[in-house]
Design a protein around this nucleic acid. Structure first.
Lengths: 300, 300
DNA sequence: CGACATATACTCACAGTGAGTAAAAGGGAT
DNA sequence: ATCCCTTTTACTCACTGTGAGTATATGTCG
């Protein structure tokens, strides 16, 4: 039997939100995600990553979730006798622990994906990308319709609405069309900053996962400091989703879920009426199940 | 640096639904999930698994999705110089390809998890389990309340509703309480058939994942044959969810999503009024986004 | 031919959601 | 002090989607 011996490598996407801007921890001046070998002493993969992040960054790591494992042959083309298995994780870091705006190592999500931030309307970056993808779709007479539909759905064109969860799909579409630097060409488009190997793809995976998860699990609170205002909470969600939310309805949503409680204190940060401070009720997870999509049940 | 050399092992949870019963492919007379080494020739993990399943089982494999990767030290206690990394996958097999009821290698989900099938009401198996878990909760004076809440929520007691997606949570709770054979004791409870190593845990992971996924992605159709009746479709979903569904509402749900279309033919299988046959519209995935939980958007 | 079984079609009340408006409570300028 | 500006907080209203139940069509079997 051809016994497969392999390297195991852990890759971390550590995310924090500071100043209403989602950020990711990087190394090599923002060129790569932090990664390290899985070593024999580690109890488990998760434990390995935790230890390793602590050593290297000093950031206490709260929420941690596995993203994806891959071992494509193309990734280690040099060494034919060994394969590298990469296991990627998504980790959330609390705001207080995150460094200031200009601190080294942390870069904004939207430096890498300028077209993903729709908080102030459709970003300009999308204009050029839309045109380039439309041309790419038209360029293959055989698959034209199929390609055009993929483009429309991904970018929210021709009647389709923008869907923030399709971040990974969009990146892969641009990769396939050769619009990003990692795939060769980059015809002067605002196609965002590129990264080492497939690290930007991993970041896109993390963004997609997190954008989906905030809708049905209270993970945002892993990014918030102990107490916060409702506006602050909303801005954090908006930063992650890359969308502007409806204030009254956001508030209704939050308190009908009973996720938070008042601390009693107030905040007078932003030159308007002072806002109540809230804290997350951890106990909620034990009280009642969170709403998830439902099947049409029958009572008997 | 302590370079981590490791074995890579692929584990597959292959599921089909035959005769309205969800089944999983097994080896060793139902004692283990099929697994095999990841070899150097394989292009990628996914490709490796596909090849390997084809060789071993001859079943064409449709949908395939990564489940989880783990490498706990406890799993390979003998060999200290090498670690085994296990990468598990969920695969869906179409009904027509699946063998008959008594065929070797395929076993019903609910042999391993008798308490998970609520299609005909709460199964009897839950009575004993409920009692045992309540006793377990009460046995630790310090953590009593916390434990009791976990039990109530997992099993749907004291006001909580049964949530079919908690299959993994339930198994882990029973494991923690020492009620399953894999964790030592099994005090004569109907705690289901056990499996090699942590394979039953992996199966529980697959069940949980699939039960969640059928709600927001049209994966059921990966299990159906080319044409089917609405009742057949419903029974397949019910088999997976382990729940009875409300017929009129199930139908409404399906056709308002425009997932299927009539073939024109009829089926006169089950001694009542003949039913229309339908087929899945693959094109739907390109037409409009599937509904997912939504954030309260703002229009500008 | 009538009882039975299943498929299919329609109805109705209600809760949750999208969207917008109004009032409250601070700071700062005049 | 008063008025303006900003932000928080509170309330309203129409509408759609969902839970639940009932009625009708169309076959088979005794």
């Amino acid at each position: 039997m051809n016994d497969a011996l392999a390297h195991a490598e852990l890759i971390a996407v550590l995310t924090a939100v500071t100043n209403d801007e989602p950020r990711v921890m990087t190394v090599s001046k923002g060129e790569a995600l932090p990664s390290g070998p899985f070593e024999l002493e580690h109890r488990s993969l998760q434990a390995g990553l935790r230890e390793w992040v602590n050593e290297q960054t000093g950031h206490p790591l709260g929420y941690l979730e596995q993203l994806y494992t891959f071992a494509d042959r193309d990734r280690s083309p040099m060494d034919k006798a060994r394969r590298t298995i990469s296991i990627s994780y998504l980790g959330l870091v609390r705001e207080q622990a995150a460094p200031g705006a200009g601190a080294p190592g942390w870069h904004g999500w939207y430096e890498y994906f300028p077209w993903e931030d729709h908080r102030e309307g459709r970003p300009e970056a999308l204009a050029g990308i839309t045109q380039a993808l439309n041309e790419w779709a038209a360029s293959d007479p055989m698959r034209r319709d199929h390609r055009q539909k993929r483009v429309d759905l991904s970018l929210g064109l021709n009647g389709a609405a923008w869907n923030e969860e399709l971040a990974l799909q969009r990146y892969e579409l641009m990769y396939e069309a050769g619009l990003v630097a990692e795939a060769g060409g980059d015809a002067g488009l605002p196609s965002g900053r590129s990264m080492f190997a497939d690290h930007r793809r991993i970041l896109a995976t993390a963004i997609t996962r997190l954008r989906a998860k905030i809708k049905y699990r209270p993970v945002v609170f892993e990014l918030m400091s102990e107490s916060f205002t409702l506006s602050h909470l909303q801005h954090t969600v908006e930063a992650l989703a890359g969308l502007a939310l409806h204030k009254p309805n956001f508030r209704r949503l939050i308190d009908q879920q009973e996720l938070i409680e008042e601390t009693g204190a107030m905040s007078s940060e932003t030159g308007g009426r002072p806002a109540k401070l809230y804290r997350y009720r951890r106990a909620i997870l034990e009280e009642h199940a969170l709403s998830s999509p439902r099947l049409p049940l029958s009572r008997n």
